[in-house]
Amino acid sequence: MNTPVQPDGTLSPTLGPEQPEQPEQPMVRFAGVTKRYGELTVLDGLDLDVQEGEKVAIIGPSGSGKSTLLRALMTLEEIDEGVIEVDGEPLTHMPDASGRLVRANTRHLRRVRGNVGMVFQSFNLFPHMSVRQNVMEAPVQVLGLAKSEARERAEELLAMVGLEDKLEHFPAQLSGGQQQRVAIARALAMRPKVMLFDEVTSALDPELCGEVLNVIRRLGEAHNLTMLMVTHQMGFAREFADRVCFFHQGRIHEQGTPDELFNQPREDRTREFLSAVNEAS
């Protein structure tokens, strides 16, 4: 299946042709999204629809724009062209009185962004807070949860990631794998509809990757969470994802089920990349 490429990548509320095989509104939609750093085009008129509950793995050579895609969806990068929608609503844009899309104000941005959670390569825990505080902070301050309720939620999630005995520890006292599991619990505590995983095992020693991937695997099985994952772990992508996108030069060069993409890649670039990865491992 090929994503329809919009010829003009302009800002327009008509978001590409209808896709009869997916009649429902996607949970995440990139339409003609372009991001440039000076001369360099990192996202090049990208189109991508992700359905609710779908697990999408994004693979590709470094510098191909994979992480930028997630970061744009988390509003950590501003996009230059196109529209990103989350759960049917434009993220960085909003309709004005006449229905035209204009730049979103802070309120709109915060409301739509609340649907998305992210886990980073470098964990980014708050070093001055205990594990429990790390997970409680945003639910209390952002969602306005009572402390007792936030505490309960934090302990529940930390138990789910297997860290119920580390509640009072500080991040520096934990291994990388443990820190990353706290970061997952912290993101989940905000009850996002979409979770983004940005190379979450890349900073970990190989023997610690498993514990993190297991948590993500369980998460995928237990919840109807929409997940986008940038990863170098081809084995995990193959087993976990519903769909794998191969990213090259700011676009999705090829995509399909793990079986299609890994076993019968159609594009030369994809084959080259996969064989390079196989040689390396």
Partner: peptide, 25 residues
Amino acid sequence: RAQWEAVTALNMRPWTAYRDVILPQ
């Protein structure tokens, strides 16, 4: 910078982010 990215991803308001996350560090 990563701390700012974390507070953005958690949808925290700038004021709360300063008070609870950025200033203590």
